[in-house]
Simulated scan of single mutants.
Amino acid sequence: MRLASFNVENLFSRAKAFDAEDGAAARKALEAFAALNALIAEAEYGEADKDRMHGLLETLGLERSDDGEFVRLRQNRGEFLVRRRSGVLDIVARGRGDWTGWLELEREPVDDTAMRMTARVVRDVGADVFGIVEAENRPALKGFSDTILPLADGEPYAQVMLIDGNDPRGIDCALMTRAGFPIASMLSHVDDTDDAGLVFSRDCPEYRLDTRGGRLVVLVNHFKSKSGGSQASSDRKRRRQAAAVARIYGRLREAGNGLVAVVGDLNDTPPENADDPLAPLLRDTDLADISELDGHDDGGHPGTYGGSTASNKIDYILLSPALRERAGASGVFRRGMWPGVRPVKWETYPEVDPRQGGEKRHAASDHAALWVDLDL
C-alpha cells in the first residue's frame, strides 16, 4: 500500500487573511481575531477587558460595521456592542451570558485552477491511505473526492473522514482511504491538556485501519505555525504538541500496536538539539523519518514547503520500527508547487510552470506531498 501526506491549504474556500497581499496586516488581524475570541468567551467583562476589546475591534476594522476586511462579527441574540450615532462604540454586554455570537473569518473561493491542481496531485501520488491537512470540513473533502477528483481522471476514495478540530479557520486533519483499507475506528485528541492547558491547535486524530498486514494506526497532525505570537511562544507550543504526540505513540506501542505512522505538517525542521521543538517526537522516540530511508527521492531538495530548502522541511511521515521494516520506495511530490522562476527548481504541471505562462496562484499548495510504499 502507499501512504501519503499533503497539506492542501483548503479545497473550496479559504480565509482571506491567509492570502492577503499585505501579509503584515493579515497577521495582525489573525492575532487580533484570536485574542478577541478569547476575551468574548469570558464569563464577565471588566473595564480593562472592554478597553482591550475596543482596541482589538479597531484593529479588525469593526468599529463601524460587523463586517471587516478579514473578520466578521456575528451577533445572533442579545447585544455585544452598540455603535452610537456620535461614533462611539459601546460594549454593552457584561459577559458571555448576555449575548450569543462569535467572530468568524471572511472567506473567499479557492482558485478553480488551483483546486484542479490539488486533484492532480492526489491522483498522481496514487496513495491508498492519504493524510490530509487543512481541509475545511468533511462535506468539503468528500465533495472534493467524489466530484473534483474524477474531473482530473482520479478515482474517488472509499472512505473520507474528518473530525473537527480546535481551529475556527477551517483547517482540519483528515484521512482518505481506498476500499482495501477500511477505517475501523477513530479517536480525537481535541480536548487533550497538559500543565499549560489545551495542547493541540487543531487535533491529533487516531485513525485505525484494517490491512492485510495487520492493524495500522495513522496519527494526522498539524502543529502550531511559526506565525502568530513570538517565536519563543510558538516554539514552546510545538514542543508541547510534539511531546503529546510522543506520549500517544508510546501508549499505542505499549498497548501492542506495532504498526504506527505519524503524518502531517509539523511546522518545524528536524531537531539538532535536545531543546528543539520537535525533539520529543523525532529524537526521543524510535520513529523514523522517511527522508532517512535508503533510496528516498526528494528530487534534490531537502525541504517540503515554499522553496524547499532545508529550512523549509516541515512536513513528515514518521514510521514505527515495524513499519520501517516494511517500507520500500518513498519520495516527495512537487509538481503542484510553484517552482520559482530563475531558474525553475522542479518540473510542474503546465498551469504552474512560468515557462508556459503558469502562475503562482494556480499552485495546488505551498506544500509538497510526501509518500512511502509499505508492504501491508
Results as ranks from 00 to 15, higher is better:
245 V>G: 05
185 S>D: 14
243 A>E: 10
184 A>D: 09
193 T>H: 07
163 I>R: 06
220 V>I: 09
155 E>H: 03
150 P>W: 07
235 D>A: 13
253 R>L: 06
165 G>V: 06
200 F>W: 09
156 P>L: 11
233 S>D: 09
157 Y>F: 14
193 T>M: 12
259 L>C: 06
220 V>M: 04
246 A>M: 12
203 D>N: 13
205 P>W: 12
164 D>W: 00
196 A>E: 11
216 L>E: 04
242 A>H: 08
202 R>F: 05
213 G>N: 01
239 R>D: 05
180 G>M: 14
157 Y>A: 14
234 S>V: 10
214 G>D: 11
154 G>L: 08
177 T>M: 04
257 N>H: 15
152 A>P: 02
232 A>P: 00
170 G>S: 02
216 L>Q: 11
168 P>Q: 10
253 R>G: 01
222 H>S: 03
153 D>M: 09
254 E>C: 00
176 M>W: 06
233 S>P: 01
252 L>S: 05
189 H>K: 04
164 D>P: 07
238 R>F: 08
189 H>S: 00
242 A>Y: 00
215 R>L: 15
193 T>N: 08
190 V>P: 04
231 Q>K: 14
203 D>W: 08
218 V>P: 09
161 M>G: 01
212 R>A: 15
222 H>M: 11
242 A>R: 02
195 D>W: 10
165 G>Q: 01
222 H>C: 12
158 A>W: 10
226 K>A: 08
254 E>Y: 02
185 S>G: 10
146 D>A: 14
255 A>K: 08
243 A>T: 03
225 S>T: 01
186 M>Y: 04
246 A>H: 07
206 E>R: 13
253 R>H: 06
190 V>Y: 03
173 C>W: 04
183 I>D: 10
169 R>M: 00
165 G>L: 01
220 V>R: 07
200 F>M: 11
247 R>W: 08
185 S>W: 07
257 N>G: 04
148 I>E: 13
164 D>M: 08
200 F>G: 03
257 N>T: 14
205 P>D: 13
174 A>D: 04
175 L>V: 12
194 D>K: 11
205 P>H: 12
248 I>W: 01
215 R>W: 01
186 M>A: 10
227 S>C: 02
180 G>N: 12
220 V>F: 02
193 T>V: 13
208 R>T: 15
252 L>Q: 01
195 D>I: 15
161 M>C: 14
192 D>P: 06
231 Q>W: 13
183 I>P: 09
251 R>E: 15
203 D>T: 10
155 E>P: 00
192 D>T: 13
246 A>S: 06
